[in-house]
Simulated assay, not measured.
Amino acid sequence: MTTPDLRSYRYRFTGHERILHNVEAAQVLPAMMDLFGYRRAFIVASRTINTQTSIVQDLRARLGDRCVGLTDDVGEHSPLPNIIKAAQAIKKARADVIVSVGGGSVMDMCKAIQLSISEQAFDRETMLRLQFVISDDGTEMLTTSTAPAAIRQIAIPTTLATSEWTPVSTPIDTETSLKARFVVPDGSPIAIIYDPKILAQTPTELLMSTGIRGLDHAINTACSSSPHPFATHLAEKAVQLFVENLPLLKDPANTQAFTNCQLAAWYTGMGQMSVPHGFSHWMVHIIGPYGSIPHSDAACPLMYAQAKWLKGWAADQHARMLRLLQQPTRDFHEVLGDLLERLEMPLYLEDLGLTRARVDEMIVPALQHPMVTRNNIRPIRNELELRAVLELAWRTPAAD
Rank of each mutant, 00 (worst) to 15 (best):
E385G: 05
L343R: 02
E125P: 07
V239F: 00
P203C: 03
Q240N: 10
M345A: 15
R387Q: 10
L310E: 14
R330V: 09
H233S: 15
L263T: 02
R10T: 15
S8A: 14
E164D: 03
D338S: 06
H277I: 10
P79L: 10
E244Q: 11
R381G: 14
T373R: 13
E205S: 12
N382H: 11
Q240P: 08
E175F: 08
L263A: 08
T143G: 10
T355F: 08
N375T: 02
I156Y: 04
C261Y: 00
N50Y: 11
A398F: 07
E236V: 12
V184A: 05
A298G: 11
G288T: 02
G15L: 01
T126I: 00
I293H: 02
A218E: 10
Q153I: 04
L130P: 01
S118C: 09
A26T: 06
Y194W: 07
M273Y: 06
M33I: 09
T3P: 06
C300I: 05
D173T: 02
Q326A: 14
R18Q: 15
I190K: 08
M32Q: 13
S274W: 09
S54E: 14
W394P: 11
I293E: 06
I377C: 02
L336D: 06
P229R: 03
T373F: 07
L367F: 07
F42W: 09
A319F: 09
N50G: 13
P203I: 07
Q306L: 10
I151N: 00
V284H: 08
R378V: 06
L142H: 09
L246N: 02
M127D: 03
L390I: 05
V28A: 05
S177D: 15
G337P: 00
H369D: 15
R129Q: 13
I113L: 08
L349F: 04
L142N: 02
T158Q: 04
H21K: 02
F182S: 04
A26F: 06
Y9T: 14
T355R: 01
A253L: 14
A95T: 08
F230Y: 11
E341S: 13
S177M: 15
A150S: 07
L354D: 03
I49Y: 07
R213W: 02
S296Y: 01
R39G: 14
I293C: 11
H217R: 05
D34S: 07
Q317L: 00
A61M: 07
A257P: 05
A87I: 06
S280D: 00
S209G: 04
L6H: 13
I19M: 13
L354N: 11
H281F: 00
N220D: 15
D338T: 09
V243E: 00
H295G: 11
D5E: 12
I19V: 14
T396G: 00
E164C: 04
P397H: 02
F132I: 07
A305L: 00
M321K: 09
A399E: 15
E24S: 12
S118P: 05
Q240L: 14
D297W: 11
Y267V: 09
A307L: 12
E24M: 10
V284P: 02
Q240W: 12
L142M: 08
E334G: 03
M270Q: 11
V364Y: 08
A222R: 06
R378K: 13
Y304N: 10
S224G: 04
T210G: 03
A305P: 01
G211K: 01
H233G: 15
E385I: 03
V23E: 08
